[in-house]
Design a protein around this nucleic acid. Sequence first.
DNA 1: CGCATTTATGAAAACATTTGCAAAACTATT
DNA 2: AATAGTTTTGCAAATGTTTTCATAAATGCG
Lengths: 342, 342
Amino acid sequence: MPDKSKKKVDIVTVAKAARVSASTVSRYFNHPDLLKPATRKRIDTAVRKTGYIRNRAAQTIHGIRSGTIGVLIPTLDHAIFAEVVQAFSDEVADAGFTILLASHGYDLQREYAILRKFLEHRVDGVVLTGLDHDEAVFQLLDQQQIPSVLIWNYAAHSRYPSIGADNELAGRMIADHVLSLGHRRIAVMFPPTQGNDRAQARRDIVLETLAQAGVTVPEDWSLTTVYSISESKQDAQALFAQPDRPTALICGNDVLASGALYAAHATGLSVPHDISIVGIGDFKGSADIEPPLTTVRLPARRIGQEAGQALTQAIIDPTAAQGHSLHVAPILMQRQSARALP
Amino acid sequence: MPDKSKKKVDIVTVAKAARVSASTVSRYFNHPDLLKPATRKRIDTAVRKTGYIRNRAAQTIHGIRSGTIGVLIPTLDHAIFAEVVQAFSDEVADAGFTILLASHGYDLQREYAILRKFLEHRVDGVVLTGLDHDEAVFQLLDQQQIPSVLIWNYAAHSRYPSIGADNELAGRMIADHVLSLGHRRIAVMFPPTQGNDRAQARRDIVLETLAQAGVTVPEDWSLTTVYSISESKQDAQALFAQPDRPTALICGNDVLASGALYAAHATGLSVPHDISIVGIGDFKGSADIEPPLTTVRLPARRIGQEAGQALTQAIIDPTAAQGHSLHVAPILMQRQSARALP
DNA sequence: CGCATTTATGAAAACATTTGCAAAACTATT
DNA sequence: AATAGTTTTGCAAATGTTTTCATAAATGCG
């Protein structure tokens, strides 16, 4: 039915077709209750016939909300970020927002550039991943006075409201757990930490917790491995091949831990009998891997949802106090990849 | 430095600060070469001082491109889609496009609604996942004459250019492979197929290929399992517990296959000695799981990249022929989870 | 039925830009 | 120094909406 001719159809095209003024058509969309049912009906058919689609850009220049939220993550390739984004998107979609998504690949400069682009699009809100960002990023946010939230990592005193888990706590929890199982000969495997405050915090706290218990990790038992199952499998295999083996391996995240699990399997080591392996994150497959991975859960979905609620709230009611940080507690998931030393 | 006062800064604010007209400021951004170096410099500092950020919405109503591409996927929770999106996003970001992302969760009605929303935002292009869509969706696309591509699945005769792998081919490849290994007692496990043409096509072709070889899959060896490791582990465990066991299990995707692998492990079955298990997709961990999974690779990154290139091309040069479909060939990855029957 | 309300609609200004055209400011040439 | 040509800039119109204000139409009431 809709008119297929290429001439652009705008609000006045519809107005003409319905024999009303443009203002009335505008009202049809924004305050339908102000219209006489008969006119409403007339416009309705006109819209249908012309195939009219509202132009959000034209609305936006009136200071009307754009209906978009900019979401800035390191990468979608980590399942955990994909999960947060999905949850966030679902949450804000209900309120009519669409997300503008971009990833910076841990490059702070790109993050700034992308944020600017978001701002050019006049996003109604911004989501940034992690607590640490370039000072220029914060200045831009301050200056534009745009509702923003930092997700994934939590800190009570963050510069903008943060919604996420306390990564230091998570690190301490897993380290404490391993310690409590009686392990003292412990190896660690973490991802590189440049531009990644989350991994950084985790590593530091794990090492510190161990140190406080009098456990020091020898140089060659402290592995740095990129986020990849194959890499971690390889590195762990090398570690396990050494004559002198640790009794436990703490991994900075579950991907690394999965790789380590496979490495153990490939090396003929039995987990948790010969070695205990733990991760951080509780990623999707972690509960089902063999053996099920002991880890601490960082509730991604929950974070996405909470962030979505907080941000829509802040956008819809800008007078309300600038949102508060929210801590989504990590949870120790005791499964079968770690055991107590006899 | 930038002015922190809340009064909105627009192009005329900058113009005043630089003692030029608004048009000149506009030219500063769009045709800088038309400006005298001195004026350019003056505007430059004015922009900096005022903290001005261009308003894309205002440009867009002039028919200028919005610089956004709408990407519509079923869900980000499947790593494979996250991967395509990431690759696509990287590709188009280079050309200055930002993506508007939304997921429909396999609900065709929602897909239509989201597409409309994209169109309201005047996206410059649209990416849809899969070949099958509501007729209304295609009509909208036809009517709006907007560059569009269907990704993930390929078909030579698709209604809009499709860029992806031939899922039927992938299904046939893996079925043929299992057959060629000498298996005849074969079980299959596929995800539910409603609203999911990809899974549908795979299942049909696998069954058909087996049938052509004279192999029929008994009712209770044909499992339908939602996309989830834990579910598939459970279902596979039930299957393996039966007295009469198949010699091979073909899974509709690698997630299902991973679950089955864990199930075998948990049941004390050795893979591939006691049973061969294969998947489709070659997901991220598939090469590193124990044993490494035999599967057929659906090159997600490649698809995302190709789609990105094709779409930017179509947007930048609309006169060029409406893009062509592109087949990204699936590749059989022979690893260790399947063996030839003696 | 006429007047005062109330309700529904239209005209025009506003929003932040871009752009065609014309005027102004330079340069080069004689 | 005057002219012609070129480069740089400004003015004003245009873009697709929303909104304020005013007017027209409908309704209620005595």
